[in-house]
Write a protein that binds this DNA or RNA. Structure first.
Length: 596
RNA sequence: GGCCCCGUAGCUCAGUGGAUAGAGCAACAGCCUUCUAAGCUGUGGGUCACACGUUCGAAUCGUGUCGGGGUCACCA
């Protein structure tokens, strides 16, 4: 039971004993006491004042007295200021919490198994390498998965790779025209970058051809349609659908290059999937329900043969689900894939980590599925996140302002190396150890930077700020962890009997209390983050915890504590803080270094 | 134009019904003979876009206005 739960239930019980009225948890709030007042937790009384017709002062005094009298083990003091009843928790409660949990690596995580959840994220196109936006997506998908797991759910990570369509044909055509057989091996370039380069070449060539046609008197629209390179690409797409061997072969080959490149990036940023769907396998899914929908009268056919659904009763337009030529559109396969996911995996929930520019699309998808009478519409959840923008505005591939994922990682690793070398604290590390440390710090900085803000909000990526290793950053938290590990190494081996927090006769000092109370909160933080599917809750929490520990560290000595009891107590606080930091960062996909 | 999201310190963000609105960065002033200074302590910095309303109480809820973004494809 968490402290807030204890306070809540004891207050409810006290109220009914005092006034013979029963209240629910919604009738009053419990907050942490603001630092300028005396106390740890605060019950806000105003709402009770009304129903009980008592002045806040009297009510607060009566409730405070009653709580202290009946729960002397838990509450040690109270005071009432205006409508706020401030309560102080006994040292013994705090000590007990510490004693019982300081070694528990699963502290704060419920042990029960709850739901089966699928998280789909990353979902790249195969014509371009991963960029900053994908990083936000990947970090978010990974972290939400970890958070849901920590909250007792079984989670399956998936990705749907958009491996077919006009975009990859563009890269293929440009490769045929310009590459002279170049491969990742022959050029020593990562496959995803190589294929991306030809996508760019396609666009350059296309633009040039259009311009030439325009100067020869065509309108822009005509020129865009008639540009030879575009015609070739469209023909290639048709050939692909007809499964022409030479086209399919090149397509497989180039996709293979891309996957190899993606795998390298995924491995480096610590992303992986339990199952990967490929659009080339799923793009025909969902056609079968069209017939069914037509029969049921949910879908209707227009004169040209195209099939539609009317969503106007849901304040949405009518939406096409099958083209007049009988081919399916994006949303058609989405319906099919959604169904396949639920049927194959028996999911309780299916989460889509997709940018907020697709909010409308996902709303339409869900509504169609509901109308078609599929039972899982309400189990689908679009975890939308805002676009990452640069200080100079949006990322535009055309203007070359896209921040490439691999470049960014490299840059961050170089920064980590520079800082580490300057500080010179790990000069005895081997080359391998150093390399690992740089990666840990670089990715810690990046992940923390992208996860510390509410996913729903769009965010500005400031290159200078993101490579900062001070303040509200991953390395700051990692540093706090390394610091604690250093204390523990110096103080000596920790064996189970070595640390036992004795009750210091001096009582707990303010920073000691604050730290234990902050640690106690961790379970609530995990469940909040899980309910909101919001990793920034964890990031903010762990930063505050680290900050608090650093204050404690500079104020009080662990190894040179005033007494042996104090030393044991502070060791326990340190051990538990390290554990919670490690655990929190792990929920963000961030590793901790023993030294840095 | 319809619908959706956002507007909090110079910048980037917390806070979503409670007390005198908080962090980090940037600026300034201190702190290494003691467990890692990637740290700690302090100072300055606010019309919570604006207006009206609901409430004992509003940055938080409602309505409207202004400003920014997204979306409304036989693209994916």
């Amino acid at each position: 039971m968490s402290f807030t739960t204890i306070i809540q239930s004891s207050a409810l019980k006290s109220l009914s004993e005092l006034y013979g009225q029963s209240f629910s948890e919604k009738d009053f709030q419990i907050n942490e006491t603001k630092s300028e007042f005396e106390g740890d937790y605060t019950i806000v009384l105003f709402a009770l004042v009304k129903t009980l017709k008592k002045s806040p002062e009297i009510l607060g005094k009566e409730l405070g007295e009653h709580l202290i009298k009946n729960y002397p083990d838990f509450f040690s003091a109270y005071n009432v200021i205006k409508g706020f009843l401030n309560l102080k928790i006994t040292d013994s409660s705090l000590n007990r919490l510490l004693e019982e949990n300081y070694q528990d690596e699963n502290f704060g995580k419920p042990s029960h198994n709850d739901q089966k959840i699928m998280v789909e994220y990353s979902s790249p196109n195969t014509n371009k390498p991963l960029h900053l936006g994908h990083l936000r997506n990947n970090f978010l998908g990974w972290s939400v998965t970890e958070i849901l797991k920590a909250n007792g759910n079984e989670v399956i990570k998936t990705s749907i790779v958009n491996d077919r369509g006009i975009h990859i044909c563009k890269s293929m055509i440009a490769w045929q025209m310009f590459a002279e057989g170049a491969t990742p091996e022959s050029t020593h370039e990562k496959g995803d970058h190589l294929v991306g380069d030809y996508y760019v070449k396609f666009n350059d060539e296309y633009k040039q051809q259009v311009n030439e046609l325009v100067t020869s008197g065509k309108t822009k629209e005509e020129a865009e349609k008639e540009a030879p390179i575009m015609k070739k690409t469209q023909q290639m797409l048709l050939d692909w659908e007809l499964a022409k061997p030479d086209v399919r072969e090149l397509w497989s080959e180039m996709n293979r290059w891309v996957y190899k490149g993606f795998d390298e990036t995924y491995k480096r940023i610590g992303s992986d999937f339990d199952h990967t769907f490929y659009e080339s396998n799923t793009y025909l899914l969902g056609k079968d329900f069209v017939q069914e929908g037509l029969q049921k009268g949910i879908l209707y056919k227009k004169e040209d043969g195209s099939v539609w659904i009317d969503l106007s009763d849901k304040n949405l337009d009518e939406k096409l689900v099958l083209r007049s030529d009988g081919t399916s559109v994006y949303i058609t396969q989405d319906i099919g894939l959604a169904k396949q996911k639920f049927e194959e995996y028996h999911l309780d929930k299916s989460i889509y980590v997709i940018g907020d520019e697709q909010l409308h699309h996902m709303k339409v998808l869900k509504e169609i599925i509901r109308k078609l009478g599929m039972p899982f519409a309400d189990k689908m959840y679009h975890l939308s996140y805002g676009m990452v923008e640069l200080t100079s505005g949006k990322m535009k591939s055309r203007e070359g302002t896209v921040v490439d994922a691999d470049d960014l990682v490299n840059e961050m690793v170089a920064t980590a190396e520079k800082h580490t070398t300057e500080l010179g604290k790990v000069n005895d590390f081997t080359k391998e150890e150093l390399k690992e440390l740089y990666e840990t710090l670089a990715l810690g900085a990046m992940k923390f930077y992208l996860l510390r803000v509410d996913p729903k909000k769009r965010m500005i990526f400031n290159p200078e700020e993101s490579i900062d290793f001070h303040g509200f950053t991953g390395p700051f938290v990692q540093y706090t962890y390394a610091r604690i590990r250093s204390i523990l190494r110096k103080v000596g081996e920790i064996n189970d009997s070595g640390i036992k927090p004795g009750l210091s006769s001096d009582g707990l000092l303010p920073l000691e209390r604050q730290l234990i109370i902050a640690l106690e909160k961790y379970g609530n933080v995990i469940s909040d983050a899980s309910n909101e599917m919001n990793p920034s809750v964890i990031a903010n929490y762990v930063f505050n915890l680290a900050k608090l520990f650093n204050s404690f560290y500079s104020e009080h000595s662990v190894s040179n504590a005033e007494s042996d009891e104090k030393k044991q107590l502070r060791l326990c606080i340190s051990v538990m803080t390290a554990t919670v930091i490690k655990s929190s960062l792990q929920l963000l996909g961030i590793k901790v270094p023993e030294r840095m």
